[in-house]
Design a protein around this nucleic acid. Structure first.
Lengths: 110, 110
DNA sequence: TTATTTAATTGCAATATTACGATTAATATT
DNA sequence: AATATTAATCGTAATATTGCAATTAAATAA
């Protein structure tokens, strides 16, 4: 079918999945790393750095923007992108809690 | 095209994306949470707990197994699944390093 | 006004993912 | 041996994702 039955899962489970989906493609990982590394974070820079076409990068940026992980600032014909630190922190809290489950449990069952 | 150009990305970027993909579906998030919560982690329990068909759960389990995050132990006709703590820890290190990037950088550019 | 530059959008092709019915495989039970 | 139980696999349908050429939109420069 190809359609996730999101209604049978909790909000938290869907949130974790949504955030994880942001990192589930190496291009988006690369984009985020660049945004953390660079001071100048123009869209064109990302196209140059990462070897993908401009529409492809633009599409990935849109997904990250929709999730709230980045924000874009229009400067003339250019757009300067950067990490939305506040939302990044929120996302981190949700994911960390999930990743840290192993510290709160005893030993293996099998 | 629908085909990720993994060859243009670094191993780390591809690793992060692969791990994130494991959590990029609420069913797999739910499975992992159950495995952490339960002592008895039989495949049938997961089918009952999560409202998806047995082949669907089996398929999700396979993906988690291929990534090394869980391991299954055959007990008669049943299979007992549990978290592979060692690999979970390794995965955590990779993802944490990525998520913690915000602590290592200065303020926003825009 | 007419380029030029930069990035978003549209349209489309190809591959990936999700889900499940039907079947199969393997073990246990009668 | 025949049946029951449990989970994997196969096949298939439907939706999602990835990628890019072509185009559009918006602002700047000539």
């Amino acid at each position: 079918m190809g359609l996730t039955k999101s209604e049978i899962f909790t909000d938290t489970q869907n949130d974790i999945a949504s955030f994880a989906k942001a990192f589930a493609h190496p291009a988006r990982v690369a984009i985020l790393q660049q945004l953390f590394k660079m001071d100048s974070c123009y869209c064109g820079n990302l196209v140059d750095e990462i070897g993908l076409a401009q529409p492809t990068i633009s599409q990935h940026l849109k997904e990250l923007r929709n999730l709230g992980l980045i924000k874009g600032n229009v400067e003339g014909t250019s757009v300067c992108y950067c990490i939305d630190k506040e939302n990044w922190q929120k996302m981190k809290e949700v994911l960390m809690l999930f990743l840290d489950q192993d510290t709160q449990t005893k030993d293996e069952c099998c």
